[in-house]
């Protein structure tokens, strides 16, 4: 596989990069851009820790070829808050203790932000279904779901 020069737009900034032809977005973000907020968990599309937004749509960056992202807008966990003000989902995860080791948290946030925008009236069951692709090895699901429910309530009001 050869190297290819491309331009990617990540968190609002466009820069040229040299990437491998078969490289996945997770590797590009973590190893070339040092955006290590996006986590590498299972690296096979199971755990959801590497979720990022591609043109506003959540995708698993470990499964997404980097070259597929050319011309699209990539948003990572580093760009989800507005400066020092956390996103509502982040705020409630902190307030309600919706994390233990915190490894799955970036994936949870990146999955739930577009989910709540798309489903503002999501029920607890629907939130559970929406989170079904995010594994928490500390098994702290109850508080994560509580936090997302609270965030949904605030985002609705």
């Amino acid at each position: 596989m050869g190297l290819k020069q491309i331009e990617l737009t990540v968190n609002g900034f466009s820069s040229p990069f040299l990437v491998q032809s078969d490289e996945v977005l997770l590797f590009t973000l973590r190893e070339r851009l040092y955006l290590t907020g996006t986590k590498e968990g299972c690296n096979q599309g199971t755990c959801g820790s590497c979720t990022v937004l591609l043109d506003g749509k959540p995708v698993l960056s470990c499964m997404t070829p980097t070259l597929r992202c050319v011309g699209k807008k990539i948003i990572t966990i580093e760009n989800i808050s507005s400066g020092d003000t956390l996103h509502t989902v982040q705020k409630y995860l902190v307030e309600k203790g919706g994390l233990q080791c915190g490894f799955c948290t970036p994936g949870v946030v990146m999955t739930m932000v577009p989910f709540l925008e798309e489903n503002p009236n999501a029920s607890r069951e629907e939130i559970k279904e929406g989170l079904s692709g995010n594994l928490c090895r500390c098994t702290g699901y109850k508080k994560i779901i509580d936090a997302v429910e609270n965030a949904a309530e605030e985002m609705r009001s």
Binding site: G45, G48, V59, L60, M63, T64, T111, F115, S132, G133
Partner: peptide, 9 residues
Amino acid sequence: VATPVLRKT
């Protein structure tokens, strides 16, 4: 099939 996020791809 799979998870809600995977189903978007």
